[in-house]
Amino acid sequence: MNILELLSLNSYYGHEQVLYGINLAIRKNAITAVIGPSGCGKSTLLLTLNRMLEECGGRAEGEITFAGKDFFSYPKEEIRRRIGIVFQKPSPFPLSIYRNLTYAPVYYGVRDKKKLNEIVESKLKVAGLYEEVQADLHKSALQLSGGQQQRLCIARALTVEPEILLLDEPCSALDIKNTANIEQMLLKLAQDYTIVIVTHNLAQAKRISDYTAFLLNGELVEYGETKKVFSRPQDRRTWEYIEGIYG
């Protein structure tokens, strides 16, 4: 089943068009990888899907269906709650670990202390961070290491129970061990959530994703099951990219 369907989506920054006629159907409870060279519009695609694009000075047009309804008919706050995003650079709030995780739930009306504790604990566990930080939940999140910060950001995105989780190169600043941690976690998450991950790392896309989309210069060149995209690409440009010709 498709949770999100894009039909000739165009995205712009001012007068500059960045995405051209993207047609893409995102499968529910699967991991979709978006690959492509730098500047091809991967981040812009994610920002469009979470309606953060307008916060960054851009705009989008086209037809998007989300959970069977017109994407643009939802209030943008609802979209942002139901489609979470994790940015490339870890961006914890300058608050304690605990307050980072209760920040959004409190906004959405959870006041019960016990409930909040429960959310914090469970999301930290999902993100594989609980063991490491449980002793000191009230220390500043800025004191965590880069890998821990990124996992905290993922946990934070999950605190509002989104249906889709968008991740923009979440491992680009991390070492192998932290990357492996996050990959483990994503595979587990895919049972309950739909995941779209932008990655520079082709091996990573191959390892964890069910579907792969290849973007080039703002156009969707190829989209299909990961296995097929990597073993028998339909488009010559995909093949060239996979073979490392674009770098």
Binding site: M52, C56, K76, R81, G84
Partner: peptide, 10 residues
Amino acid sequence: ALQSSYALGV
């Protein structure tokens, strides 16, 4: 951090 906050729909 601001963007992350808006991205949560807050």
